[in-house]
Amino acid sequence: QGDIVVALYPYDGIHPDDLSFKKGEKMKVLEEHGEWWKAKSLLTKKEGFIPSNYVAKLN
């Protein structure tokens, strides 16, 4: 089961498979690959890669 993270900063995706998000948006982490994680937005239901240093895990 994936962790839920919250965006600390907004992110505008650079690549087509990036997931753009707004500050405060919550996402479910699907896979962790070093600095880039695959996640699904709980708001938009879209999936893509996010920079892990832009988010914090919720406990």
Rank of each mutant, 00 (worst) to 15 (best):
Q1F: 13
Q1W: 13
Q1G: 12
Q1K: 14
Q1N: 12
G2M: 11
G2Q: 10
G2A: 11
G2T: 09
G2V: 09
G2S: 11
D3G: 11
D3H: 15
D3Y: 15
D3A: 14
I4Q: 04
I4E: 05
I4N: 03
V5R: 02
V5S: 02
V5D: 00
V5F: 10
V5H: 05
V6D: 02
V6Q: 06
A7Y: 00
A7I: 01
A7M: 02
A7P: 01
L8G: 02
L8I: 09
L8T: 04
Y9Q: 10
Y9L: 09
Y9G: 05
P10I: 05
P10F: 07
P10S: 15
P10C: 12
P10Y: 08
P10R: 12
P10Q: 12
Y11F: 13
Y11A: 01
Y11E: 01
D12L: 11
D12T: 14
D12S: 12
D12M: 12
G13C: 05
G13T: 05
I14C: 13
I14E: 09
I14Q: 12
I14H: 10
H15A: 10
H15R: 13
H15N: 12
H15I: 05
H15D: 08
H15C: 14
H15K: 11
H15Y: 13
P16R: 08
P16E: 10
P16T: 08
P16L: 08
P16Y: 07
P16W: 08
D17Q: 12
D17V: 06
D17G: 15
D17Y: 12
D17P: 07
D18I: 07
D18P: 02
L19R: 01
L19V: 02
L19P: 02
L19G: 00
L19K: 01
S20I: 06
F21R: 00
F21E: 00
F21S: 00
F21W: 01
F21I: 03
K22A: 09
K22W: 04
K22L: 11
K22N: 07
K22G: 08
G24W: 07
G24I: 01
E25V: 02
E25F: 01
E25L: 01
K26S: 07
K26D: 02
K26W: 15
K26A: 08
K26Y: 15
M27T: 00
M27P: 00
M27F: 11
M27V: 02
M27D: 00
K28Q: 15
K28S: 08
K28A: 10
K28C: 13
V29Y: 02
V29W: 01
V29H: 01
L30V: 07
L30Q: 05
L30N: 03
E31S: 12
E32I: 15
E32S: 13
E32T: 13
E32H: 12
H33Q: 09
H33Y: 12
G34P: 05
G34K: 06
E35C: 15
E35P: 12
E35I: 13
E35W: 14
E35G: 09
E35M: 12
W36L: 09
W36F: 10
W36T: 09
W36Q: 07
W37V: 11
W37C: 10
W37H: 09
K38M: 13
K38Q: 07
K38S: 05
K38A: 05
A39R: 00
A39S: 03
A39C: 13
K40E: 10
K40T: 08
K40V: 14
S41N: 05
S41D: 03
S41M: 04
L42R: 03
L42K: 03
L42Q: 05
L42C: 14
L43C: 12
L43M: 10
L43A: 10
T44Y: 03
K45F: 15
K45P: 03
K45V: 05
K45D: 14
K45Y: 14
K45H: 15
K45M: 14
K45W: 14
K45N: 14
K46H: 08
K46P: 01
K46Y: 06
K46L: 12
K46R: 12
E47M: 10
E47P: 01
E47D: 06
E47V: 15
E47W: 05
E47L: 07
E47T: 13
G48I: 00
G48F: 01
F49C: 12
F49Q: 07
F49A: 05
I50M: 03
I50D: 01
I50P: 01
I50A: 02
P51N: 07
P51A: 02
P51W: 04
S52E: 05
S52G: 08
N53M: 09
N53F: 09
N53L: 09
Y54F: 12
Y54M: 11
Y54T: 04
Y54I: 07
Y54R: 09
Y54D: 02
Y54C: 09
Y54Q: 05
Y54W: 06
V55M: 05
V55R: 00
V55S: 01
V55Q: 01
A56I: 15
A56N: 06
A56S: 11
A56Q: 13
A56H: 10
K57Q: 09
K57N: 08
K57C: 10
K57F: 14
L58M: 11
N59F: 09
N59D: 13
N59T: 11
